[in-house]
């Protein structure tokens, strides 16, 4: 009885949380299993084991081109959004100037405005400005989409840093640039790491903006997967999903190793 009173939640909560966790993991685990299934439908018990879909995925020109496009785009967008986002966050958190709240709102607006609207708006601006859909337009759109994530994570990180350390560095004679790179940037390590992982994954996964800003030459993975599901519907997409899940497990473990997972979530 005494022990029971001390427990912070009862068996009902444990049961519900268990079900919720199963619900959460079910599609992720299932899609990995399905990628080895010899049939295009679900089968139980599994009769055979095949690597055919994985082979198909890694030898498909369409998927490999899409994977390359996604990778190139994410590798351009992730560092660029941080290079732009870190100084901007610093100005927004530490500075005082007129119009600060408005600028912040505008930078963060793609977080609130649905991706479809952002995608269509950019597409119509591009066509009005005579910009053909291509890698540049795709990266620009993704950069606009990724910047709010960078600014949000870095700002949260900056708010947690004592500004007096910077003041001390300045009063000891360090210039503003030196203070920024020697004092501020090292303290942003966890924010930058968490934001990089998050932005990389979001850029690779984004569908609602990418579907408007990519064409046959710059098709990215989610768009290729969508078209494939509509036209063929076989587990090749499960093989792609497995690759993405493996990537996300690796990234989560990397975050855990480098900064501690719980900490990175708070950003």
């Amino acid at each position: 009885m005494r022990r029971d009173l001390e427990a912070k939640f009862g068996p009902v909560v444990i049961l519900l949380a268990t079900f919720a966790t199963i619900f959460l993991l079910l599609p992720v685990i299932f899609v990995v299993l399905h990628s080895f299934s010899p049939t295009r439908y679900f089968q139980w018990p599994p009769t055979e084991f095949t690597l055919k879909w994985h082979q198909d995925f890694y030898t498909s020109t369409m998927f490999m081109e899409a994977a390359r496009n996604s990778l190139v785009m994410a590798l351009i967008v992730t560092p660029l959004s941080l290079v732009i986002g870190v100084p901007a966050s610093y100005a927004l958190v530490r500075g005082t100037f007129p119009g600060k709240a408005l600028i912040q709102q505008v930078i963060l607006s793609p977080l609130i405005i649905p991706g479809v609207v952002t995608g269509v708006s950019l597409l119509s601006l591009y066509s009005a400005g005579g910009l053909r859909i291509g890698m540049f337009g795709l990266c620009l759109g993704m950069l606009i989409f990724a910047l709010p994530f960078a600014v949000r994570a870095i700002s949260a990180n900056l708010i947690g840093i004592d500004p007096r350390v910077e003041e001390a560095a300045r009063s000891l004679g360090a210039g503003p640039l030196r203070t920024f790179f020697v004092v501020v940037v090292p303290q942003l390590k966890s924010g930058v790491l968490a934001a990089s992982v998050f932005i990389f994954v979001e850029a690779v996964d984004n569908f609602s903006i990418a579907v408007f800003l990519s064409n046959d030459q710059t098709r990215v993975l989610p768009v290729a997967a969508y078209q494939y599901i509509k036209d063929f519907d076989d587990p090749t997409v499960a093989a792609m999903a497995t690759a993405l899940i493996v990537l996300s497990v690796v990234l989560v473990m990397l975050l855990e190793k480098l900064i501690g997972f719980q900490k990175s979530l708070r950003l």
């Binding site: 299932f30 994954v201 899940i245 996300s248």
Partner: peptide, 17 residues
């Protein structure tokens, strides 16, 4: 975390099956 980072298209496809 793994579910979150595994992406929307992956999960949409999984639910489809």
């Amino acid at each position: 975390a793994v579910t979150f980072l595994s992406g929307g298209v992956t999960r949409a496809y999984s639910w489809l099956i």
